[in-house]
Design a binder for these strands. Structure first.
Length: 316
DNA sequence: AACTTTTACAACCGCATCATT
DNA sequence: AAATGATGCGGTTGTAAAAGT
């Protein structure tokens, strides 16, 4: 069926609102209340489309709107709700008093989404994007800098690298299954909300350095069906994890651990909390708002294990 | 200082859904 | 049941301000 335009385009002003227009709209709504958006512009003496008035009111002029920077708690809520609801901005906004869907959407697109991507997390599925990680570069960056990495992280990277070399089909299959699994989780969130991956990552924190917190945990947590079955070719042995071969170095604050654009930065964002104490107990690792870089600290990666099975020469 | 690029956010557009006739 | 109107929603765009060169 055909639709009539929401308003006559002729003589309708577009673009940013002036203070005078804001005043007219606010005054009118204070007297008559919101609603009847089609007739409101004419009655209020505005050369605007009703839709534009409604948007201006709901997104900007409404008195109960809370402006200003998003707090840690708000950001965490957004991430968790988004992992359950997807791009249902109005549903998310309904749980954040004083915030509009438009504001949350903008904040997601300009801040959170980018940070998740930078951290190697898929902002749609909230799962780690292992497919885009350059594992060799991670290892070589870490080794070149003689810094200390988390043992589980290095084991995981090593495992994935070897798996990638020895059996790339299986790795791809796992990644595909992971994507599928996460899509299904997201699709079924109405009745049984999926555990937000941010929380999942947090749950990984207490991983122990005895080999239990290795790639098995990560594959399990992120939906790989039976990792042991298909990881037999992986050379992550218990020995490589349970017999730590730490290279301990004091971090040198004057020398960056990795280069600014290194892929390693992504991994530290993804798994930075693995086996470590979170920087902020009330926040997940991606809950970094005000000082993004500040909170992307490397302080959680002060331990670094080089598995015996790893041939360092390959990365130098 | 001038120019270019990036970032942040307000606003627009088209479609979907619900309500009313 | 179909047509129409009103409103809501999510994706996208435009632009001012900030940052970088």
């Amino acid at each position: 069926m055909g639709r009539t335009p929401c308003c006559d385009k002729n003589g309708i002003k577009k673009g940013p609102w002036t203070p005078e227009e804001d005043l007219k709209l606010t005054n009118y709504i204070q007297i008559h209340g919101p609603g009847n958006w089609r007739t409101l512009p004419k009655n209020a003496g505005l050369q605007r489309c009703g839709k534009s008035c409604r948007l201006r009111w709901t997104n900007y002029l409404r008195p109960d709107i809370r402006r200003g920077r998003f707090s840690f708690e708000e950001e965490e809520i957004i991430i968790q709700l988004h992992s359950m609801l997807g791009n249902k901005w109005s549903a998310i906004a309904a749980r954040l008093p004083g915030r509009t869907d438009n504001e949350i959407k903008n904040y997601w697109n300009t801040h959170i989404r980018k940070r998740l991507l930078r951290s190697g997390i898929d902002p749609v599925t909230h799962a780690p994007r292992l497919d885009v990680l350059d594992l060799s570069s991670i290892l070589s960056s870490a080794l070149c800098n003689r810094s200390l990495l988390n043992p589980q992280l290095l084991s995981l990277v090593n495992t994935l690298l070897l798996l990638k070399q020895e059996n790339p089909e299986i790795l791809l299959q796992h990644l595909h299954q992971n994507q599928l699994y996460n899509s299904q989780q997201n699709a079924s969130t109405v009745s049984t909300p999926a555990v937000p991956c941010t929380s999942v990552v947090s749950q990984m924190e207490p991983m122990q350095a005895n080999g239990e917190g290795s790639c098995y945990d990560i594959f399990t947590h992120f939906g790989y069906p039976n990792p042991q079955e298909n990881l037999t070719s992986c050379s992550l042995t218990n020995a490589s994890v349970s017999q730590p071969n730490y290279v301990q170095c004091a971090p040198n604050p004057t020398v960056p651990l990795v280069s600014e654009n290194s892929d390693f930065q992504s991994v530290q964002g993804s798994f930075g909390s693995v086996g470590s104490t979170p920087l902020n107990s009330s926040s997940t690792f991606i809950n970094n708002s005000s000082a993004d870089d500040e909170r992307e600290s490397f302080s959680s990666l002060l331990k670094f294990e080089i598995p015996e099975s790893l041939n360092i020469d390959d990365f130098m």
